[in-house]
Computed example of a mutant assay.
Amino acid sequence: MLIATPRLFARVRRRATALRRCTSGIALTEFAMSLPVLLTLGLFGLETANFAMAHLRISNIAMITADNAARVRDAIDEADVIDIFTGSKLTGEGIDFPDNGRIVLSSVEPNAAGNGQWIRWQRCDGARVFNSAYGGEGTGQNDSSLQYVGPASSPISASAGTAVMVVEVSYVYQPIIPNSFLSGREIRYVSAFNVRQRTNQTLSNNGNLSSAERRTCNFYQA
């Protein structure tokens, strides 16, 4: 049986006082309370940075594709287009672009009537369903329905005897964090370059490739 004595009361009082004055757990408590906020802000920053990087890569894909298509000299072949698409998709390898994006490459030049532009040929690559904002292959050939490509504030059109390689890229953002606030956002970029040292704008098929192999826009290409 424990008997209360003045000495025991004094010892308990000293321990209670020491416990009341102890601050060794304050930092841990504050850290536990602030951890969810810090974690949320960190993940938010990481997701935002990844989204910005995806924008940069899609912009690069559009520019690289249009530039490389414009650089093909003398004449352009279906095999050239395949090589161009293959190189462009390597840029988007880290963001799973082939399965979630699409590249639309159009050769735009003045039509025979001289009253507008037309899309002589058009090729696509990537699994995403996405159609050109300017129409399909042959648009504007016999009418004035296509006057320019690009935004109305800075229209782009090809001069007589040449062509413009127009590239439209669409990509559905794949977030790092599941159910992210950026999940499912579409990223689009358009780029255009004048062809260099190429007088024959017809797309040849010297390898006799099939429609699917030729990356025609009616076929799935990943």
Rank of each mutant, 00 (worst) to 15 (best):
A66T: 07
A54I: 00
Q174F: 08
L28E: 13
V164R: 04
T29C: 08
N60F: 11
N50V: 02
R71K: 12
D67P: 01
I95H: 00
L43F: 11
Q174D: 04
T139Q: 12
L209A: 08
I26E: 09
S159T: 12
Q201R: 03
D96N: 03
D83T: 10
N194G: 12
T23Y: 10
I95C: 00
C124T: 08
A66Q: 10
S159A: 15
L2I: 14
G87F: 06
L28V: 14
V190K: 11
G184P: 07
I103H: 00
Q147E: 11
F51S: 06
F44T: 06
G114I: 07
V129Y: 15
A52D: 08
E30F: 13
L39T: 07
N50Y: 03
D143T: 09
S180N: 08
A163D: 10
S183R: 05
A66P: 06
I156M: 10
F85Q: 03
A112P: 04
E168Q: 15
P155C: 03
L43C: 02
L19T: 14
C124I: 10
L182A: 11
S145I: 08
H55E: 13
N142Y: 14
A79V: 07
F130Q: 03
V37C: 04
L105I: 03
F193P: 03
Y148H: 14
S132T: 09
Q201P: 03
F85G: 02
R196I: 11
L43Q: 00
A112T: 11
Q201E: 10
A4D: 15
F9T: 14
R188W: 01
N100P: 07
G207Y: 09
T199E: 14
G87Q: 05
Q141T: 14
E137N: 11
A113C: 01
A160Q: 06
Q197K: 08
N100A: 10
L203T: 04
N218C: 09
T48A: 12
G45Q: 02
L209N: 05
Y220F: 11
A16R: 08
L203S: 08
L146N: 11
P98M: 01
N206E: 15
R198G: 02
N131E: 15
Q201S: 10
F85R: 06
K89N: 08
L56F: 10
A75N: 09
D80I: 02
V129A: 15
W121C: 02
A75I: 11
D74V: 13
D80F: 06
C217H: 08
W121V: 12
D83Y: 06
I156G: 01
R14E: 14
I95P: 02
W121T: 03
F193N: 13
I103F: 01
V37G: 04
L203I: 12
F130K: 04
R198A: 03
S170F: 00
T202Y: 06
Q197N: 12
E168M: 07
L8I: 09
C124A: 09
A158D: 04
Y171N: 01
L146P: 11
N100K: 14
G114F: 12
A127Q: 13
I76W: 12
Y220N: 10
P110R: 13
T5Q: 13
